[in-house]
Amino acid sequence: MEARIFKPAKSAMQSGRGNTKDWVLEFVNPEARRRVDPLMGWTGIDDMSGQVRLHFDTREQAIAYAEREGLKFAVEESRERKRLIKSYPENFSAARKQPWTH
């Protein structure tokens, strides 16, 4: 069984950084067969382990768990976002590099 260890990004519906501090171990099975339900058109899968997500406080705890259970795993490093720190008065500053227009 293979696993993926990552730190989840915030969703598009979040303004804050909630639920992005934990590390997640998610099982991946590339051999799982997907099928389409003929009546509803929903996609189903025959492997239920893809629905299991384990949360850890640190990356090292997740790696230790995967090694203890004998899982092959890949760690995806998280990228920190760049913040552009601006203030509202800078829009009207006389030292603006670009001219202010309507």
Score class of each variant (00 low, 15 high):
residue 1 M to I: 11
residue 1 M to W: 14
residue 1 M to E: 14
residue 2 E to F: 15
residue 3 A to M: 04
residue 4 R to M: 06
residue 5 I to V: 03
residue 7 K to T: 00
residue 8 P to N: 04
residue 9 A to L: 10
residue 10 K to V: 03
residue 12 A to E: 08
residue 13 M to R: 06
residue 14 Q to V: 02
residue 16 G to C: 14
residue 16 G to Y: 09
residue 16 G to P: 03
residue 17 R to P: 04
residue 19 N to Q: 03
residue 21 K to C: 08
residue 21 K to M: 08
residue 24 V to T: 00
residue 24 V to R: 04
residue 26 E to D: 00
residue 28 V to P: 09
residue 29 N to E: 14
residue 29 N to A: 00
residue 31 E to K: 09
residue 31 E to N: 14
residue 31 E to Y: 14
residue 33 R to Q: 10
residue 34 R to K: 13
residue 34 R to N: 11
residue 34 R to A: 08
residue 35 R to Q: 04
residue 36 V to D: 08
residue 37 D to W: 03
residue 37 D to Y: 05
residue 37 D to K: 14
residue 37 D to V: 07
residue 38 P to R: 10
residue 39 L to E: 15
residue 41 G to R: 02
residue 46 D to W: 02
residue 46 D to P: 01
residue 47 D to S: 10
residue 48 M to L: 08
residue 50 G to E: 07
residue 50 G to D: 09
residue 51 Q to W: 03
residue 52 V to A: 04
residue 54 L to M: 05
residue 54 L to Q: 09
residue 56 F to W: 05
residue 57 D to M: 07
residue 59 R to Y: 02
residue 60 E to M: 09
residue 61 Q to C: 07
residue 61 Q to G: 15
residue 63 I to P: 02
residue 63 I to K: 04
residue 64 A to L: 06
residue 64 A to K: 13
residue 65 Y to A: 05
residue 65 Y to E: 10
residue 66 A to Y: 02
residue 67 E to W: 05
residue 68 R to N: 15
residue 68 R to T: 06
residue 68 R to I: 09
residue 69 E to M: 13
residue 70 G to F: 07
residue 72 K to W: 11
residue 72 K to I: 02
residue 72 K to R: 15
residue 72 K to M: 08
residue 72 K to Y: 01
residue 73 F to L: 01
residue 74 A to F: 08
residue 75 V to D: 02
residue 75 V to E: 03
residue 76 E to M: 13
residue 76 E to Y: 02
residue 77 E to C: 06
residue 77 E to Y: 08
residue 78 S to Y: 03
residue 78 S to P: 01
residue 79 R to I: 07
residue 80 E to T: 10
residue 80 E to A: 05
residue 80 E to P: 02
residue 80 E to C: 05
residue 81 R to C: 14
residue 81 R to Q: 12
residue 82 K to A: 12
residue 83 R to G: 12
residue 84 L to A: 11
residue 84 L to V: 15
residue 85 I to D: 11
residue 85 I to N: 12
residue 86 K to W: 14
residue 87 S to M: 04
residue 87 S to G: 12
residue 87 S to N: 00
residue 88 Y to A: 10
residue 88 Y to M: 15
residue 88 Y to T: 09
residue 88 Y to H: 12
residue 89 P to K: 02
residue 89 P to T: 02
residue 90 E to S: 11
residue 90 E to I: 01
residue 92 F to W: 06
residue 92 F to K: 12
residue 93 S to M: 04
residue 93 S to V: 00
residue 94 A to I: 07
residue 94 A to T: 12
residue 95 A to N: 10
residue 96 R to P: 01
residue 96 R to F: 05
residue 97 K to Y: 14
residue 97 K to Q: 15
residue 98 Q to G: 15
residue 99 P to D: 08
residue 100 W to R: 13
residue 101 T to N: 14
residue 102 H to M: 14
residue 102 H to R: 08
